[in-house]
Design a protein around this nucleic acid. Structure first.
Length: 271
DNA sequence: ACTGGCTCCTGAGGGC
DNA sequence: TGCCCTCAGGAGCCAG
C-alpha cells in the first residue's frame, strides 16, 4: 500500500526514464479510477515534453509543457517502465508511450488511484492546496506537531495520518513511528507533551527515510518501476505482527481498531 | 471547527 | 475444489 516511501521510490525510479522524453501516445484502457480519467487526456499529453517528475505527499506530479499530470496510486497502484512488446496485464489502466520507445504503465487492481490533468501551479489544485508539510522537510518538527495538535482530542494515530496535518504517513508508518516514539496510538493528540512530539517527529522521519532506503514495503502488491518489491517489510516492528513478541521487551504485540484502521502496538513500550 | 463513519474497488485468505 | 464471508486501505465526503 503506497505511502510516502513507496511513492518516492516509484517517483525516483521512473524519473530517469521520463525526463526529457516526449509523450508519443497515451492509451486509457479503464477510465474508471477514483475519478474518471478525462477522455481528453491523450490529446492533451501528446507531443508534450516531460520537464519534471515531482512529488507532493503521495501525489506524483509529471510536469509537461502545458500542465501537470497528477497521479495517485491509491492503495494498490503501481507504475512500471516496460518494453511495449510486453503483454498488457489485467488492471493496466493507462499506458504512456515515450518517444524513446519505452512505456509507463499504471496498474491498479482496486482502482482507488487517480490520474488527473491540471494546468497551472499544482499547489493550487484542490487536492493539493490544503495539504500539510512534507515530513522530510525542515518545517516539520516537534514544535509544529505540538502546535498543530493543541486542543485536538483525536487519537494521535489518525492525527498523524491526516494529510492536512502532515502528508505521506499512512497506516504502516504511523504504527511504526508511534512504536519508535513509545507513544500509545490511542492517546489524545492534544495531551501529548512537547518533548514527546519532538520524539514523534524524529521517529516519523527516521522510519520514512529508512523505508525509502529499502525501496519501500511490499506487503501484497507494491512493486517498484522495474517490477522489484520493496524490502522494508522485514524491518517492521509492529505492523501486521499481532501476537508476536515485541522486539524491545518481548510483550505480545496487540491489534486494535482505531479510526477504522488496524492498529498494532506494544502495550508495554507504548504509553 | 472537529470528529467519526461511510464509501469507492478487487483479491487474498479463512472457514466449512 | 468451491463457495461465501471478511478484511485490507487513501482520503474525499458528509452528518452531527
Amino acid at each position: 500500500m503506497p505511502e510516502l516511501p513507496e511513492v518516492e521510490t516509484t517517483r525516483a525510479g521512473i524519473e530517469p526514464h521520463l525526463l526529457g522524453q516526449t509523450v508519443a501516445a497515451v492509451e486509457i484502457r479503464q477510465p474508471r479510477l477514483r475519478w474518471p480519467i478525462d477522455p481528453k487526456l491523450p490529446r492533451l499529453l501528446k507531443q508534450q515534453r516531460i520537464e519534471q517528475v515531482g512529488r507532493r505527499g503521495k501525489y506524483i506530479l509529471i510536469q509537461v509543457g502545458d500542465g501537470t499530470l497528477i497521479l495517485h496510486l491509491g492503495m494498490s497502484g503501481s507504475l512500471r517502465i516496460t518494453d511495449p512488446t510486453l503483454p498488457m496485464r489485467k488492471h493496466d489502466h493507462a499506458v504512456m508511450t515515450l518517444s524513446g520507445g519505452k512505456q509507463l504503465r499504471l496498474h491498479d487492481p482496486r482502482r482507488f488511484g487517480a490520474l488527473l490533468w491540471w494546468e497551472g501551479d499544482p499547489a493550487d489544485h484542490p487536492l493539493l492546496a490544503k495539504l500539510g508539510p512534507e515530513p522530510l522537510a525542515p518545517d516539520f518538527d516537534g514544535a509544529y506537531l505540538h502546535n498543530a495538535s493543541r486542543h485536538r482530542r483525536v487519537s494521535i494515530k489518525p492525527f498523524i495520518m491526516n494529510s492536512q496535518v502532515v502528508v505521506g504517513v499512512g497506516n504502516i508508518y504511523a504504527n511504526e513511528a508511534l512504536f519508535l516514539a513509545g507513544i500509545h496510538p490511542g492517546r489524545s493528540a492534544g495531551r501529548i507533551s512537547r518533548q514527546r512530539h519532538d520524539k514523534l517527529a524524529i521517529s516519523i522521519q527516521q522510519v520514512l527515510r529508512k523505508a525509502i532506503r529499502y525501496g519501500g514495503s511490499t506487503l501484497r502488491d507494491f512493486v517498484r518501476e522495474d517490477g522489484q518489491p520493496g524490502y522494508f517489510s522485514q524491518h517492521l516492528h509492529v505492523y501486521d505482527r499481532a501476537g508476536e513478541a515485541c522486539s524491545r521487551c518481548g510483550t505480545d504485540i496487540r491489534k486494535a481498531t482505531l479510526g477504522q484502521r488496524s492498529t498494532f502496538y506494544c502495550p508495554r513500550c507504548q504509553r
